[in-house]
């Protein structure tokens, strides 16, 4: 009984991390309309940057986040202006293939610089800290913290999208870029700000990922697939749905892992495919704010 409870708790907590991966991707899909195949690789790249910052200054990854966020935003802005705004977006295949090229460049660049050894960010004592609210039930403090961060981040994003002028613009552009441009919405500015939000989730997600799991230059693919599954299950445009979908995949992975460690990834994928089969529109369809 306690075993089952532990699996469920771990799954739910893991869902928070997955939701953070997916939060950025859902903006990229829904607003910028790029199939960003490099999303996972960008997460891994930023995690390596965090690693370098932590090692160079011997600071905690959480402290490094203060430097990492502006760096990620700056990098994202440079990419946006230098590459994305120059891509011919009339054919959705073109930006997708550009992202594909970047994915491979990032992977092999990291491989040249850091080698294949798996790395991890060291957050210190908090990683081992656990509480036991009931006998036999163990809850990792770090995992709870990650879930709380995910909830806070989603609440902020939800408020921006549904309570601000900028949010109205973003949702209009997401409905129809062409019509929004026609009535005078500044598409370029909207895209830039939306991409900054994406990079914020990437910076936070990269640090939490680096603390919670090992990563190597080729870890991006598995992160992308998880983020993608969460976005599809959660449905675009509903951020709480993203959290719920993150928890669905997290639970699936933990249940799989409790049967056999090698089933962890497979279980997540299978749950995704089953949901795709029975509810292709996702579990949590779009709502109007």
């Amino acid at each position: 009984m306690t075993d089952i409870a532990n699996v469920v708790i771990q799954g739910v907590l893991l869902g928070g991390l997955f939701a953070i991966y997916a939060l950025g991707l859902s903006l990229v899909f829904g607003v910028l309309r790029i199939v960003n195949i490099a999303h996972g690789d960008v997460l891994v790249l930023v995690a390596y940057v965090a690693l370098v910052i932590c090692d160079s200054f011997s600071i905690s990854p959480f402290l490094a986040l203060l430097a990492l966020i502006p760096l990620a935003l700056l990098g994202g802005f440079a990419f946006q202006v230098g590459v994305f705004e120059r891509v011919d977006r009339r054919d959705p295949l073109v930006p997708m293939l550009v992202a594909f090229g970047f994915a491979v460049v990032i992977q092999n660049g990291l491989l040249l610089l850091f080698g294949t050894n798996p790395r991890k960010l060291d957050a210190g004592a908090i990683e081992q800290l656990g509480v036991s609210p009931f006998p036999g039930i163990n809850v990792s403090v770090l995992a709870v913290m990650i879930l709380v961060i995910a909830i806070v981040l989603i609440a902020i994003f939800q408020a921006i999208l549904y309570r601000s002028r900028f949010g109205i613009r973003v949702r209009a552009v997401s409905d129809s870029e062409e019509n929004a441009r026609l009535i005078g919405v500044d598409i370029t500015a909207t895209f830039r700000k939306a991409f900054m939000m994406v990079m914020l989730t990437v910076a936070v997600g990269a640090v939490l990922m680096g603390i919670k799991t090992n990563f190597d230059p080729f870890s991006g693919a598995s992160r992308l697939l998880i983020a993608f599954e969460v976005v599809v299950i959660g449905g675009l445009g509903n951020l709480w749905g993203t959290l719920a979908a993150g928890i669905v995949i997290g639970l699936a992975q933990m249940v799989g892992a409790s049967i056999d460690v090698s089933y962890q990834t497979l279980a997540g994928h299978l749950v995704f495919l089953v949901i795709l089969l029975i509810r292709p529109q996702g579990l949590f369809p779009k709502v109007v704010g």
Binding site: F29, R33, V35, I37, P92, M96, A221, L224, L225, F228, E229, V232, S262, T265, L266, H269, L270, F272, L273, L276, L277, P280
Partner: peptide
Amino acid sequence: LLARLRLAYFAIASWVLAEVLMLVLGQ
């Protein structure tokens, strides 16, 4: 199965399917 997704999503979902096939046969 995958054709239920729009073009863009199809791409990544096909990758998921390949992973599943590899993980199932590879084990």
